[in-house]
Every structure is written in structure tokens, then in C-alpha cells.
Design a protein around this nucleic acid. Structure first.
Lengths: 301, 301
DNA sequence: TGATATTATCCCACAAATCGGGATAATTAT
DNA sequence: ATAATTATCCCGATTTGTGGGATAATATCA
């Protein structure tokens, strides 16, 4: 029962050549193989496909009908194979990318525009969200994330660049707030926590180049999974917040926020690209990563 | 490289089931077989079809495209197989039959009409000719012939019924002709020979129930490959002719021809059906033979 | 957080299918 | 009549495929 397709191919060869031996030659096999292929096919179909003497081979009516039906199918199958082969190197189709919202609205336009110009055949689908999508289940080709240590073992990931963070608060808040000289003072403050990663209610801070991080448990006054809204809350005097610098850069320049505890640093977090566990990335994904990384140097994080 | 179709089937099974082991169960094989089928397919296509961890299996974009292309093709292939299977028992399609002209014009209408009523799905193609067609090359499903001993080894044949022959001449011819008492007198006569079979210029005759035939070499006055025309020539006084009785029956009744040498008989010839060298005849051919044989008893040959 | 269960993959020995070559019988061409 | 071509059959050898167990990874559940 195995090798059905090969038998059909032999059948088509014989039908075209009009001879078993000619088909064997054309196929690079032996005449016994051809005989058996046809015999087996006739057996499994229960129909005689050829009427044959030792000198003449001719399609039966059933054989002719079968040939007509099967011929375009085999061609289409081969075409499907070729199409699949081409897909690996295809710069077409769709490219589904997930990206954090705050980051995407600030930095994605330039690389996207360039990529779209370079590869107009690719249909870019960008999903801006701050939640961690299931790359495999939801069919993403790439997911950009800003996180500490990629622990995901079911994906491929690649660090793009570090994302500096800083502690900020509104000048108005600080004026009326308790003193703030070291992280030990933080529990007395209103702190706004980012609730996407695991534990937003604990900050880890280290002094200068000190190695070990010290955990600081805070009493959250407000929690949100979006950095921009956290920054707005802080600017409105909501409290202290630990955020990527790029999110608060404008507010810092405008003076609506200012940094606190500048001598302390939080653990490094990275802009990281996650991919489905391909053994070899399709070319389109590769190209997108190239373009994106090229722009990453100019983000000024 | 062999077993491509089986691999594709496994691929489709996995794509549907969303799991290798589930596909293995559904297919009645082992998970190792499934793994290898997919791996081999990916190898030959050069594309990763599934993105998989030990817990999740998901189609890649290339895999999804391949699935969409391949799915209808596999179904169509299976349908083609089923179609071929049905052909053996099909009472549809065309039935190409060759038949001698003189015979066909006299006896074919009734069985054809009945068969057409019984099997309206079959497209009957009757070719009336007195020459021996190449059943295999010209794609006939059946060829009726009137001949002595079927020597054709590349076909299947089946005797339907004997076709009595008789020697006849016009009364007008006989009045002015030399005496005719035994075959030995024939060389002195004008004889009309039928030139389809091998040797029309030699008649073999035996007296009564005598066993051995005696060859009589004649001097042909006219030769033709059509019995009706020979009969007309004889009726016009052209000479003596050896013809199937059914051809001259009307002329005998009308008196335009009468039999001679009634005590002598020519070798038996048979109405015979020839078929392509099928190992098992398709049902449509069988049915046609049935109807035809049923009528053959009433031909009154 | 730790233990359990599920899963894809790898490895290995065994079984099965396939192949090619030679022999055979049939048939056509010379 | 002879030779050449052809489909088929048979047989030994090779290739291929398979299933079961082991393994590593991962998700689920307590």
C-alpha cells in the first residue's frame, strides 16, 4: 500500500510513453519495477488500467479516465512542493509581529516604513500590546518584548539592546513627600508599579556599581500594565515610578517629572526579540530583524 | 524519497490533530513514524512545516500554505481512485463496438435498442465495417466478426453462434452456364469471391457429413469485401457466390437467387465476439454481450 | 515551588517492501 | 523461419520503514 504516488507517476509515464520499457528508461528504473508498479496499482484500484500484449500497450477506458483525473493533480502536487520550497526564501506572505505598546508608538514607524519599502510584497501585521502573547499558539513570527531575563524555553530569543530605566516622580509630589535618600525610604512613599512582569510590587535596586541587588517591598498606590499611563499618573503627583527612560524622557525634559535616587540602579532589562522555535528562521523574519536592529542603534534609549 | 504521499497524509493528519501522537493514533502508527514522516517531508521540501515544542505543535506559515494547497489535491486523488474503482462496475461511459456491415444492418437494431433502454448511461459507438479493426490500438471494447477459426492471440474471443453459408447463383446465370453437379465443375464457372479473409480464391467443400474438406481453386470473376454487393452481383447473373445465408435469404425467397450444390458444405464459420485482452471484462462489456447473445438466438441464421 | 505526566525526538534491532537482473513466453518484424 | 522486442515472473540482495524503549523538554497540578 505504500508508494502510491510513485506508482501513479509510473502509471503516467507508461501512459505517456505507451510502453513499459520506455517508461522504465524514462524513469531510470527497470522494467520489472514498472510492471510491478502498474500491477500493484491495478490491484489496489481493482481496475485494469492498461490492455497489453507483449507488443502493444494501450490505456483502457478506466485507465484513460484515471489519467485525465490524476494528471493535473500530480502536477499541482509538484507545484505545491515547489511553492513550499520557495516559502523559506519567500519575501512575501504575512509577517505577524507583536510589540509593546509604549515602545511601538515611539520607535516602530521608522523601521516599519523602511521595511515596507524594501519588501513591498510582505504584508506586515503589527500587534501593539503590553501583554505577552503566545508566539506559537497565536502564530506570531516575532514578538518584541522588554523584559529582564528571557526564561522562555519554548522560543528562540535574541537581545537587541538594553533599556535603561530610572526612578521618577513629579516635583510637586516630592515637595510634600517624606524624605527620600535611599531605597529604604521607599516604603514610606506612594509607588506606582508596573504589573506585567511577575512581581511589580518589589523593586530590586543596587547602589552604583554594587553587584548585589537589594529587594525593596513597596506598598503600591497604583498599578498598571502600561508605562505611559503610569508616567501620566506620576506626573500628576501620583508617586514614584520605575520606568524605562524613553517613556519619561519628554516629561523629564519638560520638567513635569524628575529623577530620584539617581545613584541607584534597577536590574538591566533588555529589548528582546522572540521567535517561534524555528530551526532556521524564514528569510522574511531575518530581514525584518536586520532592519529593526539597524534602527535600534538610533533609538537613543 | 519514496512514500511521499504517505508523508503528506501524515502531515495533514498532524495539521488536523495538532499533535504528533494524536496523529499517530488516528493513523494507527507510532509516534516515531510520524516524527520521521514530518522530518523527511521538511527535509525534502527544505521548509519547516511545524513549529513545535514538546507540548505545542503549530503550523508555520509555509506549512499552512502547503496544507491549503495540498488538502484539496489529496482529496481529489482519493476521489480519482474511487472513480477508477467504480469504473470497473460502471454502466456509463462509452462502449465502442465494431461490427460487419452486412450483419449490422440486418440484426443490430434490436439488441442495440434494448441495451440502450437498459443502460441509458452508456454512450454506444457502433462502427460498421467489414475490415478487421485493431481492437487494442483503435480502442474498441468489442468487435463482432464473422470468421472461420479465430487465430488472433492478442485478443479474447468468444463464439456466439455458427453462421450457415450456402452457394447461390441467379437462375438466369445457371440457365446459360455449364453443368454444375460437383465442386469439380466450379473452375468452369464464373465465381465471385469474398476478399476479406485470407484466401477468397479457394473454396473448401465437403460432401454431406464427410469430414475432410477439399480445396477448389477457382478463377475469380469478381471480388469484393462486402457480402451485399456480392449478392447483388450474383443476382444480376454475375456468377456463383459463397455467402452467409442471412445475406441471400431475401433473394432466395424472391427467387432472384437459388442455391446450388446443396449437398456440399463449406467450413463452418462463426459469429465471434472479440475483446481487448482484459483479465476481467468491464461490466458494461459483459452486459452488452449478454443482451447481444440473448438476441442471437432469434436471428434465425 | 516541586512532582507528575505528556510530548517530540533519538536510537536500535527487526521486518518488510522494493529493486535489478536474468529467464521465459509471446508476438512482431525481417 | 529467424531474430528481436516486450511484458512478466522469479529470486537474492539491498534498502527502507517500523515499533518500542529511552531521553530531554515542557506544561500541569498540587
Amino acid at each position: 500500500m505504500t508508494g502510491h504516488l510513485e506508482r501513479i507517476k509510473t502509471f503516467m509515464e507508461v501512459a505517456s510513453a505507451g510502453s513499459f520499457t520506455a517508461a522504465a528508461r524514462a524513469q531510470g528504473s527497470s522494467s520489472s519495477a514498472v510492471t510491478r508498479h502498474i500491477a500493484d496499482l491495478e490491484q489496489t484500484l481493482g481496475v485494469q488500467l492498461f490492455v497489453r500484449t507483449t507488443r502493444k500497450v494501450s490505456l483502457t477506458q478506466a485507465g484513460a479516465v484515471y489519467f485525465e483525473k490524476v494528471h493535473p493533480l500530480i502536477s499541482a502536487l509538484a507545484a505545491a512542493d515547489d511553492g513550499a520550497r520557495a516559502q523559506q526564501k519567500a519575501l512575501s506572505g504575512t509577517l505577524q509581529v507583536s510589540c509593546p505598546l509604549s515602545f511601538g508608538t515611539r520607535f516602530l514607524q521608522a523601521p516599519l516604513t523602511e521595511f515596507a519599502e524594501l519588501h513591498p510584497g510582505i504584508d506586515l501585521r503589527i500587534n501593539l500590546t503590553d501583554s505577552f502573547v503566545d508566539i506559537i499558539k497565536d502564530g506570531y513570527d516575532m514578538a518584541l518584548r522588554i523584559s529582564a531575563a528571557p526564561a522562555d524555553k519554548s522560543t528562540i530569543w535574541r537581545k537587541i539592546c538594553p533599556v535603561p530605566r530610572c526612578l521618577v516622580a513629579a516635583p510637586g509630589y516630592l515637595e510634600q513627600a517624606p524624605p527620600l535618600a535611599t531605597p529604604a525610604d521607599l516604603p514610606n512613599h506612594r509607588c506606582l508599579s508596573y504589573t506585567n512582569q511577575s512581581d511589580g510590587d518589589t523593586w530590586h535596586l543596587a547602589h552604583h556599581a554594587e553587584e548585589t541587588m537589594r529587594p525593596v517591598r513597596l506598598t503600591p498606590a497604583f498599578a498598571c500594565n502600561n508605562g505611559d499611563l503610569l508616567a501620566q499618573m506620576a506626573a500628576a503627583g501620583g508617586g514614584i515610578v520605575l520606568l524605562p527612560r524613553f517613556i519619561v524622557a519628554d516629561a523629564l525634559a519638560a520638567g513635569t517629572l524628575r529623577t530620584v535616587l539617581e545613584d541607584w540602579r534597577a536590574p538591566e532589562i533588555w529589548l528582546t526579540a522572540f521567535y517561534p522555535p524555528y530551526q532556521k528562521l524564514p528569510l522574511a523574519i531575518d530581514r525584518f530583524t536586520d532592519v529593526f536592529e539597524q534602527h535600534a542603534g538610533q533609538f537613543g534609549l
